[in-house]
């Protein structure tokens, strides 16, 4: 395994061949914001929050899918990308009906955390106010598309870890929605195993347990499951 050296924000770091810029940055305590990334799932590269600058490249690079290549100089928090990230979070807040004060994930929400970390105190874009029905047909869980950011973590965890592929994305663009099976009520989904993994990976209050007053945040649980499954080691 060859070791690579690069710099992140001027700090020299080393990386293995498989590591992405995001992996290395996190290893060194450099916080690159993400929303669609979740440890243990394939990368979606859709939220664009982890875009970073690499010296000599006019383009921005998504840290989650860009290999930590030899010799590159990465800047994670230039004024430019910081401003872009802020706009992205604003766009999300205007896209659906994110009403923090009445959301089960209030104060436990990755989108809200991003806004707070960016000192985002108001949104300049016009709220789109989509009319979206909540699906409470499942005996244990609720799907509230008003809070969904289309990160597809639920789709990926259901497909890649649980293997049921109950969820997928329907339509496209602003009409895109997460649906179960043939866009039928979740409670009537024949493919759903009720494992609840989708609920555990949801960054916002789009998927939550019935009767819950808050949501669970457990960013390491897939890594735990995968290590257990593959290496028979239960590391907590």
């Amino acid at each position: 395994m060859s070791v690579r050296t690069l710099t992140i924000n001027g700090q020299p770091v080393s990386a293995t061949e498989e590591q992405t810029i995001l992996d290395v940055a996190r290893e060194h305590g450099i916080d690159i914001p993400t929303l669609c990334h979740f440890d243990g799932l394939s990368e979606h590269a859709g939220c664009r929050l982890c875009l970073v600058e690499i010296a000599g490249s006019p383009k921005l690079h998504a840290a989650c899918v860009t290999p930590a290549a030899e010799g590159i100089e990465v800047t994670t928090h230039s004024d430019r990308v910081t401003a872009y990230r802020r706009q992205i979070v604003e766009l999300l807040l205007a896209e659906r009906n994110h009403v923090c004060s009445v959301c089960v994930a209030n104060r436990n929400c990755e989108l809200q955390d991003l806004a707070v970390a960016m000192n985002l105190h108001h949104v300049r874009y016009e709220p789109q106010d989509p009319q979206l029905a909540l699906d409470a047909s499942h005996p244990r869980f609720i799907m509230d598309p008003n809070r969904c950011v289309l990160c597809t973590r639920c789709v990926r965890v259901c497909d890649e870890i649980e293997g049921a592929h109950t969820w997928d994305v329907m339509a496209r663009g602003r009409r895109a929605m997460i649906v179960s099976d043939l866009n039928q009520p979740w409670g009537e989904s024949p493919s759903c195993t009720g494992c609840g993994k989708c609920v555990r990976v949801c960054p916002t209050g789009a998927l939550f347990e019935k009767g819950a007053t808050t949501t669970v945040r457990d960013p390491d649980f897939l890594t735990y499951l995968k290590t257990a499954r593959e290496q028979k080691l239960w590391i907590r």
Binding site: D159, A164, H165, T166, W167, D168, V169, M170, A171, R172, V179, S180, D181, L182, N183, S191
Partner: peptide
């Protein structure tokens, strides 16, 4: 449903493609 079963594709993916 029929197409999904015949091609061994999960229903949500069939629906996702048909509506895309």
């Amino acid at each position: 449903t029929y197409v999904g079963r015949a091609l061994r594709v999960p229903p949500s993916r069939v629906y996702g493609v048909a509506t895309f």
